[in-house]
Simulated scan of single mutants.
Amino acid sequence: MTVQVMLISPALNAALREARFDGDAPLDAAGIRRAGAVAAGVPEADRYLRGPSERCAGTADALGLRAGPEPAVRGWDMGRWSGRRLATVSAAEPEAVSAWLTDPSAAPHGGESLFELRARAGRWLEALESSADGAGRRVLAVVEPAVVRAVIVGALALPVEAFWRLDVAPLTLTALSGRSGRWNLRCGQQLSPVPRPAV
Rank of each mutant, 00 (worst) to 15 (best):
R55E: 06
C56H: 01
D61E: 15
L63G: 03
G64T: 07
R66D: 13
G68S: 12
E70G: 03
E70Y: 03
A72D: 14
V73S: 02
G75C: 10
W76G: 03
M78Y: 11
R80Y: 08
R80G: 12
S82W: 05
G83F: 11
G83K: 13
G83W: 09
R85Y: 05
V89T: 10
V89L: 06
A92S: 15
E93L: 11
A96R: 11
A96P: 08
S98A: 15
S98E: 14
A99S: 14
T102K: 09
T102V: 06
T102C: 10
D103K: 04
S105C: 12
P108T: 07
P108V: 07
P108L: 06
P108M: 06
H109C: 14
G110M: 10
G110L: 08
E112M: 09
S113D: 09
F115K: 06
E116S: 14
E116L: 06
R120P: 05
R120V: 07
R123K: 14
W124N: 02
S130G: 13
S131K: 10
R138L: 06
V139E: 00
E144P: 04
P145M: 08
A146I: 00
V147L: 07
V148C: 08
V151I: 13
A155S: 01
A155L: 01
A155H: 04
A157H: 12
L158C: 07
P159I: 05
A162H: 15
A162M: 14
R165V: 03
D167E: 14
V168F: 00
P170K: 03
A175K: 00
R179S: 15
R179G: 13
G181W: 05
N184M: 08
R186H: 08
R186L: 13
C187K: 03
Q189M: 09
Q190C: 05
Q190N: 09
L191C: 06
S192P: 00
